[in-house]
Simulated scan of single mutants.
Amino acid sequence: MRILYAVQATGNGHIARAIELMPFLQKMGKVDVFLSGSNSHLPAALPVVFKSKGLSLFYGNKGGLNYPKMLQSFSPFKIMKEASALPVEKYDLVINDFECITSLACKIKRVNSIGLGHQASFKSRYTPRPEKKDLLGEFILNNYATASDYIGLHFENYDSFIHAPVIKEQVLKANPQNNGHITVYLSHYSDEVLQRYFSKLTSVQFQVFSKKIKQPVEEANIKWMPISNEGFTKSMIDSVGVITGAGFETPAEAMYLQKKLLCLPIKGQYEQLCNAAALQKLGVKILNAISEDFSEMIESWLNQEQQNSFVLQNNTAGLIEKIMEKVDSPFFRPSNLYNELLQEDSTASNVKGLSLPQLSLKY
Rank of each mutant, 00 (worst) to 15 (best):
R110T: 12
K30H: 14
A45C: 14
K107R: 14
D32F: 06
K133Q: 14
T102C: 07
G29Y: 08
S124T: 10
I114A: 05
C100P: 15
G115S: 13
K62Y: 13
L141G: 00
G54W: 00
F34K: 05
N61R: 10
A45D: 15
K123D: 07
N39F: 14
M22A: 09
Y67I: 15
K69E: 11
L86Q: 03
E131G: 10
D32W: 05
E82D: 02
P68Q: 05
A45I: 15
E82Q: 06
K123S: 09
S52W: 02
K109F: 04
N96G: 01
K90Q: 15
G37M: 01
N39M: 13
Y126W: 09
I108M: 13
D92K: 04
V88T: 09
Y91L: 04
H118Q: 11
F58N: 07
K51E: 12
S56R: 01
D32N: 11
I140F: 07
P47D: 13
K51A: 09
S40T: 13
P68I: 03
R125N: 12
I114Q: 01
E138S: 12
P76N: 10
F139K: 05
I140D: 01
A83G: 01
K78N: 11
S38G: 12
K123E: 12
P68V: 05
A83P: 00
S52P: 04
S36H: 02
K81I: 08
G29K: 07
I108S: 07
M70V: 04
I95W: 08
L136F: 15
G54N: 00
L21R: 01
A83E: 03
Q26H: 01
K133Y: 13
P47F: 11
M22I: 12
L86M: 03
S40H: 09
V49M: 14
L42E: 06
K132C: 08
V33T: 10
E89I: 09
R110D: 15
S113T: 05
Q26F: 00
K81Q: 14
H41N: 15
S124Y: 09
S56A: 06
G137N: 02
P87C: 09
S103A: 07
N142L: 10
E89T: 10
C106M: 05
L35E: 03
Y91T: 05
K51L: 02
L104Q: 07
F50I: 03
V111M: 07
G64W: 12
V88K: 06
K30T: 15
S73R: 05
A120T: 05
K51D: 07
H118L: 03
V88Q: 09
L46Y: 11
L141F: 01
P76I: 10
K78D: 10
A105P: 00
G117D: 04
I108T: 08
Q119F: 10
F74H: 03
